[in-house]
Simulated assay, not measured.
Amino acid sequence: MSEAHAEDGPRLRDLSEEDLLDRIFPYFVQREDVLVPPGDDAAVLRAASGSVVATTDTMVLGHDWRDEWSTPAEVGSKLVTQNVADIAAMGARPTGLLVTLAAHGDLPARWAEEFSLGVASQAERYDVSVVGGDLSGAPDGVVMVSITALGDLEGRDPVLRSGARVGDVLAVHGSLGWSGAGWWLYAQGGTDPGPPEPCPVRPAEAEPPTGWTEQSARSVLMWSHRTPVTSVSSGVVASLAGATAMMDLSDGLVRDAGRIARASGVGIDLDRASLERDFVAPPLTDALPLDVAWTQVLTGGEEHSLVATFPADSPLLRDQSDPDGRWWVVGRVVEADDARPRVTLDGEAIQGQGWDHFAG
Rank of each mutant, 00 (worst) to 15 (best):
A4I: 05
R11K: 12
D14S: 09
S16I: 10
E18G: 10
L20V: 04
D22V: 08
D22Q: 14
D41H: 08
R46H: 12
S49M: 03
G50I: 07
T55L: 02
D57T: 14
M59H: 13
M59P: 01
L61Q: 13
L61G: 09
D67Y: 11
E68G: 04
E68L: 02
W69C: 02
S70A: 14
S70M: 15
P72L: 00
A73Q: 10
V75F: 07
K78D: 01
L79H: 06
V80F: 02
T81G: 00
A85L: 00
A85I: 00
A85K: 01
D86E: 15
A88S: 05
A89D: 07
A92V: 00
P94A: 02
G96Q: 09
G96L: 08
V99I: 14
T100L: 05
L101Q: 11
A103E: 10
H104T: 08
H104I: 04
P108Y: 09
A109P: 09
E113T: 12
E114F: 06
E114S: 09
F115I: 05
S116C: 14
G118P: 10
A120P: 02
Q122P: 00
R125K: 08
Y126E: 14
S129H: 00
S136P: 00
S136T: 05
S136M: 07
G137W: 12
G141S: 10
T148I: 05
E154N: 14
S162T: 12
H173S: 11
H173D: 06
S175R: 11
Y186P: 00
Y186V: 04
A187N: 11
G190H: 10
E197P: 00
E197Q: 12
P203Y: 02
E205G: 15
E207M: 10
W212Q: 03
S216A: 13
R218T: 01
L221R: 02
M222R: 10
S234Y: 06
G235N: 11
V236Y: 02
V236L: 13
A238F: 11
A238N: 11
S239G: 15
T244K: 11
T244H: 15
M247F: 01
M247D: 12
D248T: 13
L249P: 06
S250K: 08
D251S: 14
D251W: 07
L253C: 06
L253R: 07
V254D: 09
V254I: 10
R259T: 15
I260H: 10
A261D: 12
S264A: 15
G267Y: 13
I268Y: 06
R277A: 13
R277D: 09
V280E: 06
A281H: 15
P282I: 09
T285Q: 04
P289G: 09
L290T: 11
D291G: 04
V292F: 03
T299V: 05
E302F: 04
E303F: 03
E303W: 03
E303K: 02
T309I: 01
F310P: 00
P311M: 04
Q320H: 12
D322F: 00
P323N: 03
W328H: 10
W328I: 15
V330M: 01
V334P: 05
L345Y: 03
G347N: 08
E348C: 02
I350Y: 09
W355C: 07
G360K: 05
